[in-house]
């Protein structure tokens, strides 16, 4: 039998190992030795790895490894590093008066970005992901150019800080429209609804309604229906209606007005986040220009053009 040992496969000139399956024989082609060493090296590496890193699954968690590394810890480190990287930006925003933010387009851009993130966390529950509000609940749309309490960036910040009809702040924005239930009869309410609709060009209105309006409504909503930011009296002469423009809705609002409440955020958010939220809301396309006494805060045409040419923020390399 040992004579088989050095039997050689003729076509390949390779030694046979002596195994045969139905006439098919196995050739002896040894693996390179370094291949084996590579295998041992991977075993050694795995032994080291098991000691250094989390490895063996136990009942509640895996073994920790002497390096103490964990994916959760790595995430925490990265988040901390990211927070640290933002600190200087936050400090600059905190030190900049909100009405002066627009003078620094780069800082403004960062404030808007930070505000967009905070908005998703704190505001979309009522105002919606696109900040478009919900008419059926009376959550206002923040994208349009109609503001009940004012759309300048400073006024928005004030609203965010102190809320509207919010118990948490003495400085909250608060007014109530009187309910006219039992004061006007049915015909008077119909006449008033007709006049209110006519303020924004819907229908021709009527003299009785106009008279009632002048006597009961014009003090807050103004004779033209333009409303009054200072009193939180909505404009009635535009295309935007907080609770909808149907006659039924307007009638209800006259007889038993609904009053939305917005919480102030001074007890939950830091002033920088509130400032960034104000910048974001103001940037949604309907923000009003700040009316200021100091000319510097009001950029005139050439300044805008200059900022346009030199501005490079908000650009990317893609």
């Amino acid at each position: 039998m040992m004579a088989d040992k050095n039997r050689v496969d003729e076509p390949t000139g390779t030694e046979l190992v002596g195994h045969e399956w139905d006439g098919i024989e196995e050739l002896n082609t040894p693996l390179p030795r370094w291949w084996l060493w590579t295998f041992y090296a991977t075993i050694a590496w795995s032994a080291v790895y098991v000691v250094l890193y989390p490895a063996w699954p136990m009942v509640s968690q895996a073994t920790e490894g002497v390096l103490g590394w964990s994916s959760r810890g790595a995430l925490a480190d990265e988040m901390t590093a990211a927070d640290m990287a933002r600190v200087s930006t936050f400090e600059r925003i905190a030190a900049t008066e909100i009405t002066k933010l627009s003078a620094d387009p780069e800082l403004m851009g960062q404030a808007i970005a930070g505000g967009a993130a905070a908005f998703k966390q704190h505001c979309i529950q009522c105002h919606g992901a696109g900040a478009a509000g919900y008419e059926q609940y009376g959550y206002p749309n923040l994208n349009d150019d109609d503001w009940i309490w004012g759309g300048e960036i400073g006024e928005i910040e004030y609203t965010l800080t102190h809320g509207i009809r919010w118990d948490g702040s003495d400085e909250t924005r608060i007014t109530y429209m009187p309910a006219f239930e039992g004061i006007f009869d049915r015909a008077q309410v119909d006449a008033l609804v007709g006049h209110v609709l006519s303020l924004s060009g819907n229908g021709s209105g009527n003299a009785a309604g106009a008279e009632l309006y002048a006597a009961n409504c014009a003090a807050c909503h103004q004779p033209s229906g333009a409303g009054d930011h200072a009193q939180g009296a909505p404009a009635l002469n535009d295309a935007i209606w907080l609770y909808g423009k149907s006659e039924a809705s307007i009638r209800q609002q006259i007889l038993a007005p609904r009053h939305g409440v917005m919480p102030g955020w001074s007890d939950k958010l830091d002033p920088v986040t509130i400032r960034m939220l104000a910048a974001y809301v103001h940037s949604r396309g309907g923000g009003e220009e700040t009316i200021s006494d100091t000319p510097a805060a009001e950029p005139d045409e050439p300044d805008v053009a200059q900022a346009e040419v030199s501005g490079a923020e908000g650009n990317d390399r893609l």
């Binding site: 919606g128 992901a129 696109g130 900040a131 478009a132 749309n141 994208n143 349009d144 150019d145 109609d146 404009a235 535009d238 295309a239 935007i240 396309g285 309907g286």
Partner: peptide, 8 residues
């Protein structure tokens, strides 16, 4: 979102 915006 929003796809359009009605103005005053």
């Amino acid at each position: 979102n929003p796809a359009f915006m009605l103005l005053k």
